[in-house]
Design a protein around this nucleic acid. Structure first.
Lengths: 117, 117
DNA sequence: AATAACAGTAACACAGAGGTAACCAAGTAA
DNA sequence: TTACTTGGTTACCTCTGTGTTACTGTTATT
């Protein structure tokens, strides 16, 4: 059976689907920036993240954090302070994104040098 | 001067900007799938890519390939065949995305196991 | 009594991302 | 003559991602 090529194509389709699964979670203008901010500081409050990321609105931050929570990448904890503050941290699963974030950071620098400036 | 914290924050903002530079290029429903397809086969024709990626339309593929060309990730070559065929391959710069693609593939599998199925 | 900080939410608006379907030109096979 | 293939383009439409502004409730401060 000359199935080698078809097998390879099936594998490739699986790989493409896997990449798209990742991108479904990471897509959007702000998600990776948010993860990057939380990841970098370990724990981070709502207003801190708002401050870390130039241009994001509280509406967007709130929405994106919710989605990240649903995808089990981020954990939300309400702290008993006055006024109430809310702490975000990466889950164990979220932590597994570190390699990707780091690669994307390096590549971003490279790309900017090469294309943008 | 107690500048350590501010320095760190500046560094972090730079990192976030770098990640966003990457995402500007890779964002969208199809771009990474396209790169992944070309990268996997080395060289790939329009209709092959169309076939690799479930759900993409020729309109989208054409549009995304153009953008990837503008960003110097993909090189287009018209072949003198009948009917004419067009070959796409990654540029040197596009090749530097391989690590990221591969990481995203692995993470996608992990994530699907963990969340989706 | 008024204002500020925190962590959001609600209502509305809009550009552009993405989908669908038809069409094109050149060659070629039936 | 008609139909098919390759690699697109064009027109049109829908929908969603994102932005803007204003608002909430609670506590502390002035």
């Amino acid at each position: 059976m000359g199935c080698k090529i078809e097998e390879f194509q099936q594998e490739q389709k699986k790989r493409v689907r896997a990449v798209q699964d990742s991108m479904d979670v990471l897509n959007g203008k702000w998600k990776i920036a948010i993860i990057s901010s939380i990841c970098c500081y370990g724990k981070r409050r709502f207003s801190d993240i708002l401050n870390d990321i130039d241009g994001i609105s509280n509406r967007m931050l709130s929405k994106e954090l919710k989605e990240l929570e649903i995808n089990q990448l981020v954990k939300r904890t309400v702290l008993d302070t006055q006024p109430i503050s809310v702490q975000y941290e990466l889950t164990e699963h979220g932590d597994t994104l570190q390699t990707i974030i780091s690669n994307l950071t390096d590549w971003g620098v490279l790309h900017r040098k090469r294309i943008i400036g």
